[in-house]
Design a protein around this nucleic acid. Structure first.
Lengths: 223, 223
DNA sequence: CAGAGGTAAATTACCGGAAGGTCATACGTT
DNA sequence: AACGTATGACCTTCCGGTAATTTACCTCTG
């Protein structure tokens, strides 16, 4: 460890007694992680527009220009958040759904435990970043902006997985209406969001707790 | 119609060629309705913080000071929105759930069609104000603010109704866990929000269309 | 091994624009 | 004349974004 001196303990916001300028450095890679984590939470809590760069910087214990030298702009930081969380969710969900198989063929019925497996996977990914879900699914992004398009692009793979699931479910009941499938997809992603939102306001709950809870809820709903 | 001259057709944003000052008056009550409608939509779409007073005013075809003379402040306008939509939703939902009966007694099982009836009621109320739901359920309100408290207060009756429904459902399956009931309540309100959100992006769908769709989806889920 | 210079990490101080909010004033009707 | 409807212009604050500068470490020379 060459940069030994940990003068700024990296999480203390003002580091008040600390040095004026240029206390010298936390290496870039580590700072970027810290900033991403803080940004994820702020963006997730308040939405893109309401989140403030200064607040994100302050939470890391750093000043605004740092964010700009590392991420270029507010949108750049938001985009970095998207690129960080989306692939992890995609991977986890694909694995939970058994990505080898494509859409179900005629007689095949969708596995009843798939929703629960997907939820467990999502909780696992979001355990330390519960706000991240709402970065991907930020209802307040203005349509027509680059960010809106980017968020949709990153959502897309996840939405497609959800769509295949809901389409299979509906087909199993003889319902081929594409609008129904789209609406149910929306309901599903909304449900995941609702669960993550509830989780956010119950910080003591672990991912396993949530998974177990969802198992109980699913049986009650289907019962 | 005494105010005949429709120089500002109420929906044209700038009314560019229009008159200088005092083009004459739409009576206060009617203006307040227009403003409330516009505010509901803007707040619902963008969230409280991101919505702009100027945009709301522009949509009505009026300038900012009008909003302030009629509603005092941005928060005042938001509050007026809450007070406008919350009671209507409460009334409709109470009726749909059969407000006469309290919680279910031991042997009684919750009516299977209740969710569908509630959804139909909600769609009916929101038909012309689809964004209104997200005024009540704005995730981006900062905790600790007056608005956050007010929104929760207005939500409360609705949430309590939802809670009684979910608690009954879970009790019917031998589940008495209060956290489970709370989480399921959250999931239910989240689901309603997801459906309203989908509806918002499919303006051609009527409330009846939505109700019918939900009936199909419910059978598929429970099947 | 000292110092010169390069470079990465970080800050202070500032700019321009957008948005909440206010004031004095202008119309039209009664 | 008086009142209700409405506006243009302005103030202040907050926030995204930038420029100039400072501090600390590393390395390359003599």
């Amino acid at each position: 460890m060459n940069t030994a001196r940990a003068s700024s303990s990296a999480a203390t916001p003002p580091a008040k007694g600390a040095r004026g300028a240029g206390t010298k450095g936390v290496p870039r890679a580590r700072r970027e992680e810290q900033i991403l984590a803080a940004a994820m939470d702020e963006f997730g809590r308040h939405g893109h527009a309401s989140a403030s760069m200064a607040a994100i910087a302050g939470r890391v214990g750093v000043t605004k220009p740092m964010l700009y030298t590392y991420f270029g702009s507010k949108d750049g930081l938001y985009l970095a958040c998207l690129e960080h969380v989306a692939p992890r969710l995609v991977t986890a969900i694909e694995e939970a759904m058994g990505r080898s198989r494509g859409r179900l063929t005629a007689g095949e019925k969708p596995a009843a435990e798939t929703p629960h497996r997907v939820l467990s996977a999502v909780f696992g990914v979001l355990e330390e970043q519960r706000g991240a879900w709402f970065v991907l699914y930020d209802r307040t992004l203005k349509p027509g902006t680059d960010l809106h398009a980017a968020a949709h692009r990153h959502r897309r793979t996840i939405d497609d997985l959800a769509a295949s699931g809901t389409a299979d479910l509906l087909r199993g009941h003889g319902n081929e209406d594409p609008l129904d499938a789209d609406a149910l997809k929306h309901v599903w992603t909304g449900t995941v969001g609702a669960l993550v939102g509830w989780w956010t306001s119950h910080p003591d709950q672990s991912a396993q707790d949530m998974a177990a809870r969802c198992a109980r809820l699913l049986t009650a709903i289907r019962g």
